[in-house]
């Protein structure tokens, strides 16, 4: 109806996650009606990403360099390795500003009912990395606090336990700034389960 080029762009947009026919049409007509410069800049950006962005050979996050900026930064603490499910989780952790170690990206989570098995992820590469790099003292299992994330953490534990490295799991429970009154049953139950000692730490005089 609109011509082959327009129909093709609608089809391509529809292949993206979360985009249906109407959104694909809206995006397409935004580009059709916008300036040539804007449209071609988008096409160039997509081409550049596909040509340059690669998984880092060490941590598997997306980067234009391998090793990536974080893996090759000498200021990052080599003793701590944070294991996350996706490259976007690295971004989230970096935004927190509270973590100075390195990362390992699994590229997904184990979901056996959907056919995603442990060997589909980078768990073997992680075990090999920990085995080879004797500077790593702690591995933080920062998979999502979901059923799949917990199952993935169990697979990680099985793979890393024989290597004798210290493993920790991100705390879960009440959000900072929240209140008990509005917390869900699940969050409260997890906060109770993960409660910590609160004695005053006495410093040596």
């Amino acid at each position: 109806m609109y011509g082959e080029a327009v129909e093709r762009l609608i089809r391509e947009f529809k292949r993206l996650p979360g985009i249906g026919q109407r959104t694909a049409e809206r995006l397409t007509f935004h580009i059709v009606q916008g300036s040539e410069r804007e449209g071609l800049a988008l096409a160039d950006a997509i081409r550049a990403v596909k040509e340059k962005a690669r998984p880092c050979a060490e941590c598997f996050t997306v980067s234009e360099r391998s090793p990536c900026e974080i893996c090759s930064d000498p200021r990052r603490d080599p003793r701590v390795l944070c294991v996350v499910e996706r490259p976007t989780d690295v971004l989230a952790m970096e935004k927190s500003g509270g973590y100075k170690g390195r990362y390992h990206v699994l590229l997904g989570a184990v979901n056996l009912l959907e056919g995603v098995e442990p060997h589909d992820l980078t768990i073997d590469a992680l075990a090999e990395r920990v085995r080879q790099d004797d500077r790593i003292e702690e591995v933080i299992l920062a998979t999502n606090p979901t059923f799949d994330g917990d199952a993935t953490a169990l697979h990680l534990r099985a793979a890393l336990e024989p290597l004798g490295v210290r493993m920790t799991r991100l705390a879960r429970g009440l959000p900072a700034g929240g209140s008990l009154e509005f917390a869900s049953k699940a969050i409260l139950a997890e906060a109770l389960e993960g409660r910590r000692d609160y004695q005053e730490r006495r410093r040596p005089s």
Binding site: L112, L113, R131, Q132, D134, A158, P162, G164
Partner: peptide, 22 residues
């Protein structure tokens, strides 16, 4: 799919790390 996972958990092959920790 899950029937393959019902046996005893496959032991993880243990190869020592390159050198003692620390």
């Amino acid at each position: 799919r899950l029937s393959r996972y019902l046996g005893a958990q496959r032991p993880v092959r243990h190869r020592p790390r390159r050198s003692p920790r620390g």
